[in-house]
Amino acid sequence: MALWGMVIDLDRCTGCQACVMACKAENNVPAVGQKEAERGRIISWMQVLTETDEEHHSEKMRFIPRPCLQCDDPPCTKVCPVYATYRNPEGIIAQIYNRCIGCRFCMAACPYNAKYFNWYTYQKEKPGQNPDVSVREKGVVEKCTFCHHRLQKARERAHAEKREIEPGEYNTACAQACPAQAIIFGDLADPGSEVSKLARSPRAFKLQEELGTKPKVIYLTEGEGGG
């Protein structure tokens, strides 16, 4: 069984937000508008967080693109009262919009703030949207799904052609867009895959690893030195 995961190289990430916008276009995530944005309600499944290094007079800044980390031991799914968010066998944390009761318990429980709420009806179906992804209604929680619909499509295609999914056939929109190739997506269960190799790099670390959430999005720290 595949275990989908992602490596994000912070040394390469330029904070450009291509991943952010790619995700919005791919997953029909709306812009919420100026008023709502001012109230802190921007929905950004992939969000570039910035960390300033306070020891050096904020001289250093770091960009941390943060999708849902697809924790293997996700605190968010534990608390859902209605099975509206759960871990599927390939390690993707599912989010079921038409079951969610909107209690936001999962949001409160996610240590990475990866879940977003539809405070209003932010959008209707309209041209330009991706038909593979449903438009969310008000009152439900949404988050990065590792572009799960792409897996389904890839799988159907492979199935129709009577073969297994090939490496690289299932890629996420954010990884595909990233101009710095800072995002590498693939199967962590396959030790030969690029993600697996990078995940074992000495630069690899996990966000809030001490919480034991076992994220499947793994970061690489900045490198040192020049030639």
């Binding site: 709502e36 309600r41 703030n113 709420f117 405070w119 009806t121 008000k138």
Partner: peptide, 13 residues
Amino acid sequence: QGLGVTGLQQPVS
């Protein structure tokens, strides 16, 4: 209208 009419937001949900 939805919970938008409250002062709740991200991350204070």
